[in-house]
Design a protein around this nucleic acid. Structure first.
Lengths: 290, 290
DNA sequence: CAGTTCGTGCAACAAATGTTTCATGATCGG
DNA sequence: CCGATCATGAAACATTTGTTGCACGAACTG
């Protein structure tokens, strides 16, 4: 016989609460209010904090239909598991047809990517920028679609540190510069799943050389993030569509360059002015007009 | 001297990982990838799932500076505690100096860019995608910082239309292909103020050749947007900082590629699968593992 | 009022947990 | 080639965990 809907152990607890003895009610309320500690700390610890008897927790679990505290806690743990964040809720399932389908795809995509940007942790970026500021030389790595991010970062950093910034593999896919890394230098590796072998190799070489490693990746478990001093996370799979999104990575790269420039002070400003003057002299740009 | 961020036990683990013995590396990776289970399940359980010796977990914890597995797990548990709501949300308000200034700069920048994305008009993107779908050949142009956008677009489009997409100036800054444009082809020009002469020349050449012209720019008055069939606008100056922002342009490029792929139907899907298979065969990527 | 049931705290219990020790095999340097 | 160090798995260890038996007191019942 299957009982009523076992939606959540917490709701079962809440429903059964009024019909329970007084002491069990107290403990039950404590569990409901501190369900995170309930899943992570021990029964005796909880009892001490709640000012109750350890046995009360076992009795509570049995009172609401579990075989014991262990089983209740396992249910709470599963209910709290983070990976249950509705991966396909409002997504491509509602594949609309007609002329508006494409427009809907675009707006959904833009909205999702906009939502992802504020979730990027700012502090690691600031710390990484300081590391770049202190580095004698900066190497930048990114393959396949991440190469665009690498090149943007290379371009912006070279605007005010032209001598000290270099793109790894600029002369071709096999020009890896693996032996060129030195301590005191910084190596930036950009990538997301699936990770290329080349980026992992660069990260390992940088690590062995004692260089400061900065990874821009979609996960802390990325192979090239191992051993890195700084990991800057973005959400590659956040938006609908078939390719991972690089918007977050671009935003990180730009912020990194901006803060690094800010740390550079007047010296960086002067070099940027020099670069701009040189570009203007070469008449690279179309002159502004009213 | 500011050391690397020791905020999270996961970062400590990640930093120490490469210098660890092989078995401890495996266990460390497992913990990093399954940190929720690491906080909730028992050491022996984890060992069984990871296929490792229980003792390895204790050794791992000691290797990265903890007194034992219990202490490491406690640190992981605290790092995961949900009620850690935004330590910097209300703080870094008007602080323009001090250690929080950089963080404020980053958060402001990200927020501004996130706000700009939904303002991008979707319909022109969908229309441009249809034009790309109909084009016999696609040329992509972008100089200076916009080159990164051009290369991303080139990369993504070539995934399912490898024969028909080409980056203008791929062989060098003077390789402009100006005479190669034909009617029935599409030329994409990416740029914002100040505009480079090269991009304007490409646009004019495309116009004269009768090719379909698509401009990704920050203004309808951009020189290379004159005579253009499609103008896709983004806000380059929307975010604080010293460099114009390319986040919007990247988002447009990705949306453009996504819709074009969507229009390609099963044929595009098949070509994408072929490309992926070729990459897998070349073992470009690190193989996934549990 | 006596008898019963129920709720509760305490303490003892068996099981499981994290840790340590030890033996074995691999790796490295002289 | 040998000795020393290190990495690693298995088993023994002390501790902690969740559980249960028991006693006491309150509340309810006849």
């Amino acid at each position: 016989m299957i009982g009523p809907a076992k939606s959540s152990p917490l709701s079962e607890l809440r429903i059964a609460l009024p019909s329970l003895p007084m002491r069990l009610q107290e403990v039950g309320r404590f569990v409901a209010a501190n369900d995170y500690d309930a899943t992570t700390r021990s029964m005796r610890d909880l009892a001490a904090v709640a000012g109750a008897d350890p046995a009360a927790f076992t009795r509570l679990a049995k009172a609401i239909g579990y075989s014991g505290w262990d089983e209740l806690r396992a249910a709470l743990t599963e209910a709290r598991r983070p990976s249950q964040i509705a991966p396909f809720s409002g997504r491509a399932k509602s594949r609309r047809h007609g002329p508006n389908a494409d427009i809907a795809l675009v707006t959904d995509k833009l909205k999702a990517e906009a939502a992802g940007l504020p979730r990027i942790p700012a502090q690691p970026i600031a710390e990484a920028a300081r590391a770049l500021h202190d580095a004698k030389r900066i190497w930048i790595t990114g393959y396949r679609s991440c190469r665009s991010v690498a090149e943007l970062l290379n371009y912006e950093l070279r605007l005010f540190r032209p001598e000290q910034v270099q793109l790894v593999g600029a002369s071709g896919p096999d020009d890896l510069d693996l032996g060129a890394f030195r301590a005191g230098e910084a190596v930036i590796v950009i990538g997301f799943m699936p990770y290329t072998h080349a980026s992992v190799r660069v990260a390992q070489a940088a690590y062995r050389a004692g260089a400061t490693l900065i990874a821009i990746a979609d996960s802390v478990t990325a192979p090239m993030a191992e051993g890195t001093d700084h990991v800057l996370l973005f959400e590659a799979a956040a938006s609908p569509g078939f390719f991972p999104s690089l918007t977050g990575a671009i935003a990180i790269a730009q912020s990194l360059a901006a803060v690094t420039f800010s740390l550079g002070g007047t010296a960086a400003k002067k070099r940027l002015e020099n670069t701009e003057a040189r570009l203007a002299a070469a008449s690279t740009y179309v002159s502004e007009k009213g």
